[in-house]
Design a protein around this nucleic acid. Structure first.
Length: 607
DNA sequence: CTAGGGTTAG
């Protein structure tokens, strides 16, 4: 039996207003009734209340209302929003007269429920029925082609829109821009964008976001500035994209300014903006800033929790990371695969093997199948901790074929713990995979060379050369005001490099008196020992720190960013530098942060 | 009535 529905009471009320002798009253009731149902469905769709919706659907079937196109559209849409695309499809198939609206609802349903292939299948079916796409169908199908990066298909849909004269529509235009951007055709996206007769927030946001996804940070920022200049609307979407740019390029000062703008426009409470801000502050080494943003946003979504977890992992705030995870559990915030990558990453940075295993097991309880990245993370954790055999058994227990990153993690562990035999085994497996990514060659070459397999080592190096991959130059940079000051090892190009070298010399004396001894084993073999000593003294991070010591006010922490791993000797040296100068020095290398304070580092020498 | 962006990891 059906439960009484609220619409009945409404119905009774309206009935009272109709004179009983009105010959139209029956028809009117019917009309009123289905309008009520349609409104009820709409509100249920908005609030996504599934049980009640199912009741209403049952009622609709009983009363025969599903024959009314409007009702079936609402039903399709209801199941789409409650993430039940198959039920949407069922309603769609049962709809006898399919208007373009019906097609539109079902195509958008699949596009929104991560089934772009099915969306496109229905798009084709629709064309087969001779139904012309309209200004609602174009956006959905373009979205689907963007999701799949189906460049040629997307282009043909774009052409169809041009032919049928829909290219002037803002929705269609914005979708075309987004589609080309997603397919990596940023120039085409820009051409369409520039030719659009009318543009809105979404068109601008899509274009800016497109540039950020391709790493064209400067163009993204330029466009953002242009939008501000022209007094155009920017919204939380635009802000989150552009803050992400600042995060990726560690532009703290600019990021702060944009944060200020968010506060002014009160877009700062959006959790999307919040996630980007947490990540920005974290990536720029300002972990306190990340905590503050996190605390100040009341409505946190999963992305935001994950961003905070990553921040904790990068800064080795392990206890805080575990604490956050507990908080999530207590609030019934369901973790996803990224959440687990974050906690595993945190465990790996602290060498916490047992905790890592615990979280790895916990995944199953949450119904998340570990992916290759989770396995790689476990191998990394065990490998770094020296438990190479356990790492191998993890690999052997993988239900899927181990990927390059899994073997790479094992290779890293082997390098740290000097297990040449296992390293060669891993290297052979990587070769078997056929394709080898550029970062891998060095690891392979070193593994083979250490085991005396020089021919294979040469082969790995040759592959590297053939690809034209050069070893990345080690660079360090600090931000000051509107400028980023970049240094390479032994660099003398900076305007105040004289002062910088003098400062390092002075400080070097102090450091030696405090007990610092340079460890030259970190320098490549080919140079003589005097040169070694010189070379290590002027690694890029030291130049950057010296620059900070000279130019920053004493209480300001010196934040240095680096694209490569910090070498062991520099790590020791920076500890002494922090002690002798009384400064807080924060160094971000290619995968984490080191906060040096009073002769100690936050990583606890495990990195 | 139906339509177009995203946050978080490496």
């Amino acid at each position: 039996m059906l439960h009484p529905l609220p619409l009945r009471t409404t119905h009774r009320q309206t009935q009272l207003q109709i004179p009983l002798n009105n010959p139209l009253s029956n028809q009117f009731n019917f009309e009123q009734n289905y309008r009520n149902i349609s409104n009820l469905l709409l509100s249920l769709t908005r609030s996504r209340t599934l049980p009640k919706g199912l009741q209403v659907h049952a009622h609709i079937i009983k009363t025969g209302f599903q024959a009314i196109p409007l009702i079936s559209h609402h039903l399709i849409n209801f199941y789409s929003k409650t993430q039940l695309p198959l039920d949407s499809q069922r309603v769609f198939e049962e709809t006898q007269v399919k208007s373009s609206t019906t097609w539109s609802s079902v195509i958008s349903c699949f596009a929104q429920n991560e089934l772009p292939c099915v969306a496109i299948e229905f798009f084709h079916r629709m064309l087969g029925f001779g139904v012309r796409p309209d200004d609602h169908i174009f956006p959905s199908s373009l979205k689907a082609s963007g999701m799949l990066s189906w460049r040629e298909f997307g282009r043909s849909v774009h052409c169809l829109a041009l032919k049928t004269g829909f290219d002037g529509d803002v929705f269609v235009g914005s979708s075309v821009v987004d589609m080309y951007a997603k397919c990596g055709q940023i120039r085409d996206a820009r051409t369409v964008f520039d030719r659009m007769p009318v543009r809105n927030v979404v068109s601008w946001g899509g274009m800016i976001c497109g540039y950020t996804q391709l790493g064209e940070d400067e163009e993204a920022l330029r466009l953002f500035k242009e939008a501000l200049w022209e007094g155009l609307d920017v919204n939380d979407f635009t802000f989150s994209s552009v803050i992400r740019v600042c995060g990726n390029s560690t532009l703290l000062e600019l990021g702060k300014q944009i944060h200020g703008l968010c506060l002014k426009t009160s877009y700062d409470s959006s959790s999307f903006v919040g996630s980007s801000l947490v990540s920005l502050y974290s990536k720029c080494g300002v972990i306190e800033g990340a905590y503050q943003v996190f605390e100040e946003i009341p409505k946190r979504n999963l992305g935001m929790w994950n961003a905070m977890l990553i921040a904790c992992a990068q800064h080795a705030h392990i206890e805080k990371a575990f604490d956050l995870f507990k908080q999530m559990e207590s609030m019934f915030m369901k973790p996803n695969f990224i959440t687990f990558l974050c906690v595993l990453y945190a465990c790996s940075h602290a060498g916490l093997v047992e905790e890592g295993k615990h979280y790895f097991e916990l995944m199953k309880e949450y119904g998340i199948e570990p992916g290759d990245q989770h396995y790689a993370s476990m191998v990394d954790l065990l490998g770094r901790a020296g438990r190479l055999q356990d790492a191998v058994s993890i690999i052997n227990g993988m239900p899927m074929k181990p990927t390059e990153s899994v073997w790479g993690a094992l290779l890293t562990g082997c390098r740290i713990h000097k297990n040449t035999e296992l390293a060669v085994y891993a290297a052979d497996r990587v070769f078997e995979l056929g394709q080898v990514s550029s970062g891998m060659h060095v690891l392979l070459a070193n593994a083979y060379a250490a085991a005396g397999r020089y021919e294979d080592a040469a082969k790995a190096r040759k592959m590297l050369r053939d690809r034209g991959v050069k070893k990345e130059t080690g660079l360090s940079w600090v931000e000051q005001g509107n400028c980023v000051h970049t240094f390479a090892a032994g660099d003398r190009r900076h305007p105040i490099s004289g002062e910088i070298y003098l400062k390092l010399k002075e400080l070097g004396g102090e450091m030696e008196r405090a007990g610092y001894v340079a460890d030259t084993s970190f320098v490549l073999r080919e140079v003589g020992s005097d040169e070694k000593n010189q070379a290590i003294r002027y690694h890029s991070e030291r130049l950057a720190i010296a620059f900070g010591l000279i130019t920053f006010p004493p209480e300001r922490p010196i934040r240095v960013m680096k694209n490569l791993r910090v070498c062991g000797d520099c790590h020791t040296a920076i500890k002494f530098m922090s002690k002798c100068s009384g400064r807080v020095i924060i160094v971000r290398d290619n995968n984490r942060f080191h906060q040096f304070e009073d002769g100690k580092c936050s990583c606890g020498d495990y990195w």
